[in-house]
Simulated assay, not measured.
Amino acid sequence: MANVLIVGCGDLGCRLGTKLAESGHSVYGLRRQADLIPEPIQAIQANLSVPITNLPDKLDYVYYIVSAGKYKDPAYYQAYVLGVKNTLQALKSQKIKRFFFVSSTSVFGQEDGEFVNELSPTIENGGFSTKRLLEGETLVNESRFPSTIIRFGGIYGPGRTHLIDLVMEGKVHCMEGVWSNRIHTEDCVGILNHLFELNEADANQVDDLYIGVDDTPTLSCEVYDWLAEQLSVPDVEHIEPKESSRQMRSNKRLSNARVRASGYDFIYPSYEDGYRELI
């Protein structure tokens, strides 16, 4: 059995940690409000913006699943750069089998509906959020530990029903011709657990980068219209995008072929599967 540390043990981390613990592994969850971490995860209170001194010994795996508290550069720097530096420093004497870093598909900047996979280029001159995510990825990849980056698309699921709420309240419109990509919470946890099990079986089977999205990149208006129909509310307004709005909005079709090829089977392969259950 393995000793696993989950740094940033929020919603995804607690779901993953519970799953791993139920499989017999020793799981430690680190977050600022340690009292929010449920058993059987062993809680560790720590602030990632300062040196970390209370990690357990003999850790085998680390998951870094941190979110920035605000959409501001200082918050992103603390979450994805300083927090990573302090975590790696605290682990310097340990022999970690693999360091998993949860990132975002927002680092891909394609705007014209292109098909995107792990070999596609990231944004060269993006905003602060992209810059900090890529800095964090680089820190992890350049550390002495074997590492894997997982870039998730738009996450939805229990407690993440923002789009449903907006459609229900008639407070949303959609932009014609814009592709969107998403993944259910349970599949995020499923992928993270799957890669752990794959590494335990044979570390050479695990790649250094995966895109985490479901099988169906979909035009945003199609998703909104389907939700409105399911919720029995008026149709969502469609608008024609201006060139300036296109440049501000990601528009790409992400491939999950690599994670599929690794042997992972999706619980919710399409938005209909996932949202129907939530509704």
Results as ranks from 00 to 15, higher is better:
residue 6 I to W: 01
residue 8 G to R: 01
residue 12 L to T: 11
residue 18 T to F: 11
residue 23 S to H: 14
residue 28 Y to H: 11
residue 30 L to Y: 03
residue 31 R to I: 02
residue 32 R to P: 02
residue 38 P to G: 10
residue 42 Q to M: 09
residue 43 A to I: 06
residue 47 N to G: 03
residue 50 V to Q: 15
residue 52 I to W: 06
residue 52 I to F: 07
residue 53 T to G: 12
residue 55 L to F: 13
residue 58 K to I: 14
residue 60 D to P: 00
residue 61 Y to W: 15
residue 62 V to Y: 02
residue 74 P to A: 09
residue 75 A to T: 02
residue 76 Y to R: 00
residue 76 Y to M: 01
residue 78 Q to V: 11
residue 79 A to P: 05
residue 81 V to P: 07
residue 90 A to G: 07
residue 100 F to A: 04
residue 103 S to R: 03
residue 103 S to A: 09
residue 105 T to Y: 08
residue 107 V to S: 04
residue 112 D to Y: 14
residue 123 I to D: 03
residue 124 E to A: 10
residue 124 E to K: 10
residue 127 G to M: 06
residue 130 T to P: 00
residue 131 K to Q: 14
residue 136 G to S: 01
residue 137 E to G: 00
residue 139 L to C: 01
residue 140 V to R: 02
residue 148 T to P: 04
residue 149 I to V: 03
residue 157 G to S: 04
residue 162 H to D: 15
residue 163 L to F: 10
residue 164 I to S: 05
residue 166 L to R: 13
residue 172 V to K: 05
residue 174 C to R: 08
residue 174 C to A: 15
residue 176 E to I: 09
residue 178 V to F: 12
residue 179 W to D: 04
residue 181 N to C: 06
residue 181 N to S: 07
residue 182 R to A: 03
residue 182 R to I: 06
residue 182 R to H: 07
residue 188 C to I: 14
residue 188 C to V: 13
residue 189 V to M: 03
residue 189 V to D: 04
residue 191 I to V: 15
residue 196 F to Y: 14
residue 198 L to N: 12
residue 203 A to P: 15
residue 220 S to L: 15
residue 220 S to A: 13
residue 228 A to Y: 09
residue 228 A to N: 07
residue 230 Q to M: 12
residue 236 V to H: 08
residue 242 K to A: 13
residue 244 S to G: 04
residue 244 S to I: 14
residue 245 S to T: 14
residue 245 S to K: 12
residue 246 R to K: 13
residue 252 K to D: 10
residue 259 V to N: 00
residue 259 V to L: 01
residue 269 P to Q: 15
residue 273 D to F: 08
residue 278 L to M: 06
residue 278 L to E: 02
